[in-house]
Write a protein that binds this DNA or RNA. Sequence first.
RNA 1: GGCGAUGUGGCCGAGUGGCUGAGGCAAGGGCCUGCAAAGCCCUCCACCUGGGUUCGAUUCCCAGCAUCGCCUCCA
Length: 450
Amino acid sequence: MFRLYDSATAEVRELRLRKPGEVGIYLCGPTVYGPPHLGHGRATLVYDILRRYLEWSGLKVRLVSNITDIDDKIIDRANRESRPWQEITHKCESVWFQAMEKLNVQRPTDVPHATEYVDHMVRMIGDLIGLDRAYVTEDGVYLSVQSVADYGLLANQSLDDLLAGGGDREVFGAGNKKHSADFALWKFSKPGEPSWPSPWGDGRPGWHSECVVMSLELLGEGFDLHCGGMDLKFPHHENERAQAVALGKEFANHWMHNGFVVDAEGEKMSKSLGNVANLLDLMDKYDPRAYRMVLLQTHYRSPVRVGQDNIDAAVSALAGLDSFAARTASVVGDADGRVLASFRERMDDDLDTPAATALLFDTVRQANAAIDAGDASGPGLVQAAREICAAFGLELKQASDVPADVAAKAAALDAARAAKDFATADALRAELQAAGWMVETTKSGTSVRR
RNA sequence: GGCGAUGUGGCCGAGUGGCUGAGGCAAGGGCCUGCAAAGCCCUCCACCUGGGUUCGAUUCCCAGCAUCGCCUCCA
């Protein structure tokens, strides 16, 4: 039984599935107006790990993750750079998926674009107006939050309390709204802005509408799980939910939110890593698996600081796992059932990847010891560790392709050792190491890998 | 002002009312090795402060301090 913290009820509870064996997940994807940053990386990695684990458990996962390709920020950038807005969204989306590939994040099963669903949104807004839960003003169409009985559920605040805060912020459309918490479903366009026709005037959809329409369309009412970063909980998810409730539709059954990437020690980090807030820079400088490793060792709801120390520790930990994979590459066996059962138990407990990762390291250590001792438990442990890595989306480096000249040097090294010509052996090893090879000299011969 | 989170060893980061204080990184010692590397073994025993509850609290409660997030841009 997979148990997961539900942000709506603030408790860990079973993730109930509408259809046994199948799970439908909606994940709020990026607004494509700039390069992906560390926060995007965390969210996508967390939900990639969730997805892989659920699939590893035997569930059929449908993961819908949208691309917001129409938004004020996109328009602003297009105006600023005097470029067509589609050029920006296409470019950013392609950069996004390249980054995801580097991170080994599987592509969602569905990637709907907001611009593909404008007609749907217009129909939905019409329905909301028909139900008298939305109204037209001078600058757009708004949802009346007072028509939603439990508005504030996700924020865990009453409408009044929500309004008490906010201080001196400027509220969009404040002058026209019936209630200051009402939010835009449709924004009338100014001349030159991208626009779509609607019965109320040309314009573009508000941010919160696309996800309601797309999730309900693709996953259906009462779908299993809605995910996203903690920062989307309010107002974005609250407002998605408000629209569904106003329509009288059942929305997500369970809500999951990941914690933030915090930038404490910001100056230390930027000094050594450069502008590391950018995900691309991080992956440029370090093994992209290192970020996944850092996140595996942190609970998904905790804040995580991505600093040089953290990343370095993850890189070292990965080196140990890689060397384990290399030395056990030829080991074949059935996975140790007790290890896998323990793995499931940990992961089923609110996706406890830190505990599961600890198990992985323990298993690797035991496997190494068993293999050194020639113990029969070795292969089962090795295979269990491999399965855990697969469920984590962690690809270990086994033997790399070795060029002929390198292989020849390794052979010469062994020959020199056999002849007790240690000076030559040491010189060859130093040469290989200088060329960036990891040299491991064992009784059964020398192996090299990157 | 409202809602919420966090404060753990040299660093990162889990977790628990007592029983042997996860795991990773780093450091030191040992085994192995021609020497290394890799691997294995051992060591380094912490929980912000002050009260309270309790036979016993790092873990529960209260207060305080500190840091942080959200309260209509944000993964």
